[in-house]
Nucleic acid binder design. Structure first.
Length: 578
RNA sequence: GCCGACGUAGCUCAGCUGGCAGAGCAGCGGUUUCGUAAACCGCCGGUCGUCGGUUCGAGUCCGACCGUCGGCUCCA
């Protein structure tokens, strides 16, 4: 076995590959201004300032030019320079001048040279360009200078590099595999959802099989919530603008709200969040300390204006449904309620065998305009959240600036098949909205007290959650989730009647089954069921009809032979519990 | 929103430098009644994303818009 790949070595290699790319650009497109070119998790990129964008043909020419640079095995030489020297060297490049200006006084300023190309760079680099054994330029993209849309858009070239040809091939194969499980592709192939341009971008339509999948998840959650003392509520999709002015969403998220509609005397907006509605329900009665906690749950569909370039599939949409709930509790109940919510979220991940990590999101003190609520209230809620998380003894990281507008939160991030991480479950502690809406309960002392709110959504959005599940399972859902759990395949027309009786028995037992009675051969029906990733195919012919049996073929394990129908049903029920 | 690529039948795709719109699968009709991943024959199917322009002539060239994809920015 080859020695384990040292990430630092790979980073150096990719960093050097970025320099070789910049060198190639300087040869073929001398008018181009270099900016920055770091290594990334999967490769590297380099941003160039250039009037005309790079074409796919340009990329081919650059790959050839890079190969020449690598062939020369040029050493990466590091040299420390003075600030003045650096400014002189890069006098004609405003980007480098800006970077030099940002290097703190007293820090070393270094430049790296490979052959005829010199770049301002902190390093480190590979020994020489010949170490880059395998590389590929992947695609181009626009990217703002320093990531701000106020700055000029630069031309970015993405590439990747490895220490061997095999590693590169393995990476490219992985990209291909990831493409095959893309939820947008599988969504169409498996008949789960669609996007109609006439309905609108970012507004997915759920097809029957997708709707069954989603409903199965919703039913699971409803069942858990019922067991945990949640109460269902249902609220409309529109509300007066004033509601969101009080909550603060109108001010803080105006650019993400759909333009308002005019009623007779009021302005109505599509709801971007469910919480103010649930707050109104809480506020509709006098509440005693004995009534708390109150847990309102709703699969609430919300609408947020997203920039068109951001839309795609089920994971980035303009309308989506949250498995939302708002818990109103006394301060002394906060920690136990919080723990109950985390328990529910972990149950979801366990049921689906998903790997996750937890992240505490705190507010960014540098950017107070992103939030509502005073410092003291934030201090209180952040302290409460951190305490609750610590008591769980759950590994987590802390991210400053990742709070919600009204409070800190605990997010759960799930990694999907392509390695992307998705924020799925979330719990938020909120002292702000109860204050803004003047919520109260009467305490033991007969005095009014302010409740605390917990916002939580274990799935996050059903759309995004299903999108991630499609990719995670590559469409081959576990039995309990599969939209069609079994297809019954009669071998010849004379077996249709028995097939129908099998369907009735299994349907009555709660399974989602279909009979494939097309005038096709059994082989064709099996093939179609496999491609549709149906967990079980039940072949029925003369032998099965005579014995009240089914010949079971598993999607994953192949032909399992004939067993009694009652036995199949018992096995299936067991499997769904797992 | 910004940068780039792309948009041809329900799906996957071909159509070279402008000169009569193609294939496979799906669908429909027929034949076949079959034992674990595609039976056979035939037929239908397209305002080449939309609108405008250049040209004797546009799927092909140009522009705008709509949409999709890869990024950037944003994400309560």
């Amino acid at each position: 076995m080859a020695r384990p790949l040292d990430m630092d070595d790979l980073y150096r290699l990719r960093h050097s590959a970025a320099h070789v790319l910049a060198q190639a650009v300087s040869h073929l497109f001398p008018e181009t201004k270099m900016t920055i070119g770091p290594p990334t998790e999967d490769g590297f990129y380099y941003d160039f300032d250039r009037d005309t964008p790079f074409t796919p043909t340009d990329l081919e020419a650059l790959e050839a030019e890079m190969a020449r640079g690598i062939g020369r095995s040029e050493v990466f030489e590091c040299r420390e320079v003075t600030r003045d020297e650096a400014l002189t060297l890069f006098a004609d490049n405003p980007y480098k001048v800006e970077l030099i200006g940002d290097i703190p006084e007293g820090d070393r300023i270094t430049i790296y040279t490979n052959g005829d190309f010199t770049d301002l760079c902190r390093g480190p680099h590979a020994g020489n360009s010949g170490d880059i054994k395998a590389f590929r330029l992947l695609h181009t993209a626009g990217a703002y200078w320093r990531g701000s849309e106020k700055n000029k858009m630069l031309q970015r070239i993405y590439g990747t590099a490895f220490q061997s040809r095999e590693d590169l091939d393995a990476y490219l194969t992985r990209l291909e595999e990831a493409k095959k499980r893309d939820h947008r592709r599988l969504g169409r192939e498996l008949g789960l959802f669609m996007i109609s341009p006439l309905v609108g971008a970012g507004l997915p339509l759920w097809l029957p099989r997708g709707a069954v999948l989603r409903e199965t998840l919703s039913d699971f959650m409803r069942d858990q919530q019922r067991k945990r003392g949640y109460l269902p509520v249902i609220t409309p999709h529109l509300a007066k603008r004033e509601l969101y002015e009080i909550s603060g969403h109108w001010q803080a998220y105006r650019e993400n709200l759909y333009p308002s509609m005019h009623g007779e005397h009021e302005e109505l907006v599509m709801k971007p969040v469910n919480c103010p509605f649930h707050i109104q329900i809480y506020a509709s009665e006098r509440r005693s300390y004995r009534d708390l906690p109150v847990r309102y749950a709703e699969f609430g569909t919300v609408y947020r204006w997203e920039q068109s370039g951001e839309l795609g599939g089920l994971t980035r949409v303009r309308g989506f449904t949250q498995d939302d709930s708002h818990i109103f509790c006394r301060p002394d109940q906060l920690v136990s309620e919080f723990h109950g919510v985390v328990d529910l979220i972990m149950l979801v991940f366990k049921r689906l065998k998903l790997e996750y990590r937890a992240r505490v999101g705190l507010r960014d003190p540098e950017n107070p305009s992103k939030y509502v609520g005073g410092d003291d209230v934030w201090e209180q809620s952040q302290t409460a959240l951190i305490q609750a998380v610590n008591e769980l003894q759950m590994p987590h990281e802390v991210a400053v600036g990742e709070a919600a507008i009204y409070g800190p939160k605990l997010d759960f991030l799930v990694r999907d098949a392509i390695g992307r991480e998705w924020q799925l479950g979330t719990v938020q502690v909120d002292y702000v909205l109860p204050e803004r809406f003047g919520l109260e309960y009467t305490g033991e002392d007969g005095q009014p007290h302010r409740p605390v709110m917990i916002h939580r959504a274990p799935f996050g959005s059903l759309e995004r959650f299903v999108g991630v599940l499609i990719e995670h399972f590559a469409g081959a859902f576990p039995l309990w989730l599969a939209p069609v759990q079994a297809v019954i395949i009669p071998i010849a027309d004379r077996h249709a009647e028995y097939a129908e009786s099998v369907r009735t028995k299994l349907s009555d037992a709660g399974l989602r089954v279909q009979v494939d009675r097309r005038p096709e051969r059994m082989q064709a029906k099996i093939r179609d069921a496999q491609l549709q990733k149906v967990p079980y195919m039940l072949v029925v012919g003369d032998k099965e009809a005579a014995a009240e049996a089914v010949a079971v073929r598993s999607r994953d394990r192949g032909d399992l032979g004939a067993i009694a129908l009652t036995q199949f049903l018992a096995n299936a029920v067991d499997e769904m519990e797992m």
